[in-house]
Structure formats: structure tokens, C-alpha cells
């Protein structure tokens, strides 16, 4: 049956699939599904089967691609976590139970990496949120060239994280980097800082790059949320004599708090999983100081130890899952309290 012959009736509503649908129209040529029943019930059943086939035909390409190239490797990766799977020695791929997990937990680097990941998420997210919020507030009022402005500050998004890492690696260069030069010119430092090689400053440098990159996202999301606040609410607040700060904290922020909380949640997950900038800038060094879980995972994969890398991946998923559940529970609790 070609897709073009398939006619799919629009749904009557949630759960009412086909129940109140008009009788099927004859399909021109080709095979039509099954023997044509004349009884009402079987007719309806054939109709839903055909409708299902039609939907399936439309969905099939997407489902096949996602299943074969995303979900299959994911599940295969999941079981590799419990095996000895090293590209350098594929003769022995036996099951080792929790062996890979035990190795990871016994490795002191893992705890450094875990701590770095938390620093990476929190110290990126808070400034991104604050600057993004301020930008959004200031962008809410119309001004000439606002569209142009938005398109310009949007530009970091067109660049890959990896390349951003490289741009900032060049700017943080200790000898010929522009950042040291500017700091020296303004008199803030007299000695050039060896940003990326010094364990004390490397994390600061990668964080600055990530903050630079992520502010736009918050600005856009928060601006969209702000624009969803009805004008009448703000007018009423103004009539009641509420000042700008009061309006912001008592009216606007409560109104968009759910959107804000969900945006933060998505960002936590995303930043936790975002190795690109670090990979381009420091590769995790010096002395693992900028390694987060995902950059460490890449390094493990590149060494060929797929078993261990997969185990790390499962740990990441578990950590994020637990975090998400607690976060959502806390959100609900807070929501019920204010109500």
C-alpha cells in the first residue's frame, strides 16, 4: 500500500480513536487491508487497522532511524557496562557483573571528576541565569533595533562548543592571549596568568567560556516567559501602587516560576552532559582539574574501554534521574505550599 492511497481520519479526541469516525471511504486501487466486512463492528475495526497502518507509514521512517541508530546502540551500550569490553582485546568479552562499576568507584579520579561536574554545573548555571534574567528584563521593553540586537546576541549558538573551546583557548593563551593583555593593560595583573596550565585557574577559564555561551539560552527562555505574563496583571499591580521591584518579585516571578524551574532543570541535565567546551579548551587537564564525567567518558572511550565507559554512562543516567525526581518533588511541594 502506498502512502498516497492511505486516508487517515483525524482523531475525534483523546481516547476516542475511530469510535465516532465516519465510515471509511473506498481506497482507490491497491490492496486494501483484509476482507471487506459489511457489519458495522468489523467495518470499524478494519477502519482502525487501516488508520493505524496509515499513521505507521507516516511514522515509520522516523521510528526506524531512531530505533536503529539511537536506541539500539544505547541498549547495547547498557549491557556492555556489565562486560569486559575493550577494543584492544576483543577475544575476551565475558560478563563481569558489576566489575566495571567497582573499578570506577575504586578510582580516586572518579571523585575528583564528580566534584568537578558539580562545580561545572552550579558555577555555570547561576551566572547564566542571573545575566540571562537581567538581559530578558531589559529586552522586554521594545526599542529600535531590538530584533537586530537579538539576532546578534544569538550568535554563540551557531558555533559548536568544541570551536568555542578553541576560541577561548586562544584568548586565554598565557603569552599571546588577549585576556592577559587586557588584564595587564587595566593594571589588574602584573604577571601573565598561565590560565589553562595552572590547576588553580583552568576551571575558572572553562567556566567563563561556558557562561558566555549559555546566557543567550536563558535570556531567550526567560524573555518568552516574561512575554506570557498578561499585561492586565501588571497594570493592576501598577494601579495598586506596586513599584517595579515589588511587581517583579510579587507578580512576575511567581507567575513564571514553573517555567523558570523547568528551564533550570533542563539546563542542569544539559550542562552536566556537555563536554564540548572543555574538550576543545583543556581536554580535561591540567591533572584532571577540568575533567567532568562526560569528558572522562570520552577519554575512556578513546582508550577503547567501552565496558567502563558504558558503566560511567549508566552512572550519569542514574545520577541525573535521581536528581530529576528530587527536583520535581521539591517543585511540587513548593507549589502546593504557595497555593
Amino acid at each position: 500500500m502506498s502512502v498516497g492511497d492511505t486516508r487517515i481520519a483525524p482523531a475525534a479526541g483523546p481516547g476516542g480513536a475511530g469510535a465516532s469516525a465516519p465510515p471509511p471511504r473506498p481506497v482507490g486501487g491497491g490492496r486494501s487491508g483484509g476482507p471487506g466486512g459489511t457489519l458495522g463492528s468489523s467495518q470499524r475495526r478494519i477502519f482502525t487497522v487501516r488508520k493505524g497502518l496509515g499513521l505507521l507509514a507516516f511514522m515509520a521512517p522516523a521510528l526506524i532511524f531512531v530505533a536503529v541508530f539511537i536506541y539500539y546502540p544505547l541498549f547495547a551500550g547498557g549491557q556492555m557496562a556489565f562486560r569486559n569490553y575493550n577494543l584492544n582485546n576483543l577475544t575476551d568479552t565475558s560478563w563481569v557483573g558489576l566489575g566495571n562499576f567497582r573499578d570506577i568507584l575504586a578510582d580516586p579520579v572518579f571523585y575528583t571528576v564528580l566534584r568537578n561536574s558539580v562545580v561545572w554545573v552550579v558555577a555555570s548555571l547561576v551566572p547564566q541565569f542571573v545575566i540571562g534574567f537581567a538581559l530578558a528584563l531589559w529586552l522586554r521593553r521594545r526599542f529600535r533595533f531590538r530584533g537586530v540586537y537579538q539576532a546578534l546576541v544569538f550568535f554563540p549558538w551557531a558555533i559548536s562548543g568544541f570551536l568555542i573551546g578553541i576560541l577561548f583557548r586562544w584568548m586565554f593563551n598565557s603569552e599571546f592571549g588577549v585576556i592577559n593583555d587586557l588584564l595587564a593593560k587595566t593594571g589588574l595583573i602584573d604577571q601573565p596568568i598561565n590560565w589553562l596550565a595552572d590547576p588553580a585557574t583552568a576551571m575558572v577559564a572553562v567556566l567563563i567560556a561556558n557562561i558566555w555561551y549559555g546566557v543567550t539560552f536563558f535570556a531567550i527562555m526567560i524573555l518568552a516567559a516574561l512575554q506570557s505574563v498578561p499585561d492586565e496583571m501588571l497594570e493592576a499591580a501598577a494601579l495598586d501602587g506596586a513599584g517595579r521591584a515589588r511587581t517583579l518579585f510579587s507578580i512576575v516571578i511567581p507567575y513564571i516560576s514553573v517555567t523558570l524551574a523547568l528551564t533550570v532543570l533542563l539546563r542542569v541535565i544539559w550542562i552536566f552532559n556537555f563536554p564540548d567546551i572543555i574538550y576543545g579548551m583543556t581536554g580535561g587537564g591540567p591533572a584532571d582539574r577540568t575533567h567532568i564525567v562526560t569528558t572522562w567518558m570520552i577519554q575512556t572511550t578513546q582508550r577503547g574501554d567501552y565496558g567502563r565507559a558504558s558503566a560511567l554512562g549508566l552512572i550519569v543516567i542514574a545520577v541525573l534521574l535521581v536528581f530529576t525526581v528530587f527536583y520535581l518533588l521539591a517543585m511540587r511541594e513548593k507549589g502546593s505550599k504557595t497555593r
Binding site: I269, N273, T294, M297, I298, T301, A309, G313, I317
Partner: peptide, 15 residues
Amino acid sequence: QMIPSFIALGPLYLL
């Protein structure tokens, strides 16, 4: 959109 894609990297290479 949420899972770390690197868990799939190895199996994808084998596939």
C-alpha cells in the same frame, strides 16, 4: 535529548 550520547558511541562504532 537528555541521555549522554557517549554511551552509544562504542556500540554505534561496532554496528
